[in-house]
Amino acid sequence: MTGHAATQHDPAIHAMDDGVDGPRNMLFGVRLGIASEVMLFGALFAAYFVIRADSGGWPPESFGGERPEILLPGINTLLLVTSSITMQLGVWDVQRHGGRHLLRWLVITVLLGVTFLGIQGYEYANNGFGLRDGVFGSVFYTLTGFHGFHVLAGLAFIAIVANRARRGMVTAQHHTAVEAASYYWHFVDVVWLFLFSTLYVL
């Protein structure tokens, strides 16, 4: 066979980027990736519940301090849920209207996410306890920290997509990345709902 003759426009080879099957492969892959992430948070939550069950009360007596207030994280929950909605509005917009308002929705989403991180940073700074303060500090900061890191990654992803949208590189036909980002963002949102209810409420 003569080397590269067929490669130039071969769908399979460029599956990731463009081509016939590419986008659907990409989204399939993103779903699988999220499945694996679910297990990662599953492990963290398992650790949380086991440690909590081990220690008579919660927070454990040795911890001394209080559980963080519910107000700020409550606001954060609203922010994140809203951002999930704005993200989805962006996706629908690009699917149905070719993305006339896509950029707007993405920017709003990013702003909401950044505010979320800002508030969380403020909370971290004013909690009065640290990562090294016993198991409570460990699970609190590790779980929210892991989640915060995912928020950051999601924001970077959305910002990149927004930039591409700004340059007109996202169209009704080519918007895989928008959908991928939305899957990821919804996932991050759902994880937060679990975190919020277990860490702050229950």
Partner: peptide, 29 residues
């Protein structure tokens, strides 16, 4: 795989950042 990655990360945090997931003396398991 991500479960063991999580477990090893917690172990690393215990070693490097001073958490106490697996430190019995501080409430870990």
């Amino acid at each position: 795989t991500s479960v063991v990655a999580g477990a090893f990360t917690m172990l690393l945090f215990d070693r490097v950042l001073g958490t106490s997931f697996f430190r019995a003396s501080r409430g870990g398991d």
